[in-house]
Amino acid sequence: MKAPRILAATMLAASACLLAGCGGTKPPPGVVGDPQLGKLALTQYACQSCHKIPGVVGSDTFVGRPLEGLAKRPFIAGNLLNNQPNLMHWIRDPQAIDPTTAMPNVGVSEKDARNISAYLLTLD
């Protein structure tokens, strides 16, 4: 009974590493918040149901933009400079920035938006 237990543990550990390794780990300098908490928080607002997000398990969806390489983009939401305050504003109240956007306000708290943006800004 011991051998399969060790085998199973190794397999689990290996897949956990794979999962954790998918997203980046360090946001660019000047970005505040906890990326790992953000990675969890964004699943609790169903971000992954519209956006493909590296490191987050979900369906292949193209309702919103895939968020791969977000940290490298000069602009977000079409014409907003890509920095953490703007990203947090967009996440929290997209329709204040673009009233015609299909992205809804899902009620993200400031703290969660800080952590979520910190995670998204690790994606390069």
């Binding site: 699943t43 609790q44 607002y45 169903a46 992954q48 519209c50 969806t61 899902v106 009620g107």
Partner: peptide, 15 residues
């Protein structure tokens, strides 16, 4: 947006 019930289900009901 969905109501909060729809946001943190797994799997997410989605759009």
């Amino acid at each position: 947006a969905p109501d909060i019930h729809g946001l943190s289900m797994q799997p997410a009901p989605g759009p």
